[in-house]
Design a protein around this nucleic acid. Structure first.
Lengths: 243, 243
DNA sequence: AAGTGGTCTAGACCACCCT
DNA sequence: GGGTGGTCTAGACCACTTT
């Protein structure tokens, strides 16, 4: 196995593939040291910087780990570890071949209830924008979204806008502080009477509950709420560890 | 803002932090081009390779994107995207300050039922190892694990081993093909009578259902099963996008 | 002292985009 | 043709580990 410098595949990637194959086929087993960077450099006719780039790639993928002063070693695969990626609703549905949509159920200024006020770090009763929406996949309701957001821009609430835009984009328009980061917590629950009716399933049906806080650049919350995903229409698949 | 070459923090990291601060504080806004690599190189007194290292780091974190021949641009943050990482059970519980444990409920050779046979790509009725375990946190049951695995090593089934090791390690011992990758699907369900009794909660309680397939290096399945996590004792928090 | 990985440099050539 | 990012090199110094 050697590097083809005339190939369109860059050398650093070729070397990463060679080493990955050797690891996956058992030439190097978990705990084994890989040849040193200097030796790989000489063996494959590449500069040390290029060799290091290949190794960084494998390290990011979790196949190897480096130890300063000691060497580079094959990692034991962490098979009981999983990474679940939840994409934006529209993307997720489009990826499954379904037509994404949304129906606005309610949007009005309300005095912040206790929990929302706490999460938004506002006095209870401050006027906030409350939005309820139904997220659809090919016309069928899949998720029920309820959000509170600081409303200090005085911009008019346009039904059309609320119906089609993602929550972060809505916050951007109606709050003075721009949302810069998001924190989500994924839980599981069963649907109550009202929620089940809105989602067109039986009460007691299991559902994902995703709590979301949108934070501004300085870490203060500008939006908060939660979204219920029907358990019979939604699942998360672990991301493969690719190099 | 400039680079302190006498600092212990390496220059590539200092520059990444400077640029991150400028992006988060709005000096460069989504869609804006960053200065070119040549200009950053000159402005901060660093070689272009070092500048590129800073930019790669920001790109991996999702703050910027590069376009060949055009430039480097600030990304719009994907606030409705979340990454949930499920660590190995023992690690996860230890991280929460709970004492992880496991109790073996059953382990025996059984003729593979239809679904397990299909998932393991074996004829129905082939003898496979069936394991049922209870995963504990500080003595309290948190998850109920049921797994099937190919059994072609003839190694004796040691109760002690099954009680303390993670599923991939058990597969490694009892199947001829080493597990090299894992695929998981996260769903939501409600507990049936038996499951609820075993987990010491009321029937109808919501739970996470994690289906797992362990694959060998050539992509063939060597282990399959599912694990139920009590919804009142388990949640997933999105990983922050750190640089 | 010798070997290892971690960082940095100054230059080079290339593919791509725009004007 | 001039500017951009993508890749590669040959060397250097450093911190760390082991002998």
């Amino acid at each position: 196995m050697s590097i083809d410098k005339s190939s369109f595949v860059p050398p650093y990637y070729q070397l990463a593939q060679i080493l990955e194959r050797q690891i996956r086929s058992g030439v190097y087993r978990p705990g084994d040291p890989l040849p040193s960077e200097a030796e790989l450099s000489e063996r494959y006719g590449l500069s040390r910087m290029t060799v290091r780039r290949s190794l960084s790639q494998l390290a990011r993928a979790g196949l190897i780990r480096t130890e300063r002063g000691k060497g580079t070693f094959v990692s034991r695969p962490q098979l009981d570890r999983a990474v679940f990626v939840m994409e934006e609703f529209h993307k997720e549905m489009a990826a499954r071949g379904l037509a994404p949509g949304a129906r606005l159920l309610e949007a009005r200024l309300v005095p912040a209830p206790e929990k929302a006020a706490a999460r938004l770090q506002l006095p209870v009763g401050t006027r906030v924008l409350y939005i309820r929406r139904l997220l659809l996949a090919s016309g069928e309701p899949v998720a029920y979204d309820r959000k509170y957001l600081r409303y200090d821009r005085g911009k008019p609430i346009l039904e059309n806008e609320l119906q089609y835009q993602a929550f972060p984009e809505i916050v951007e328009k109606h709050a003075a502080a721009l949302p810069m980061s998001s924190r989500m917590v994924l839980r599981v629950t069963v649907l109550g009477e009202e929620e089940a009716r809105i989602l067109n399933v039986a009460a007691g049906t299991p559902a994902f509950l995703v709590e979301q806080s949108l934070l501004s650049g300085d870490g203060r919350p500008v939006g908060w709420g939660w979204c219920l995903y029907r358990g019979d229409r939604y699942e998360l698949v672990s991301a493969p560890e690719a190099i």
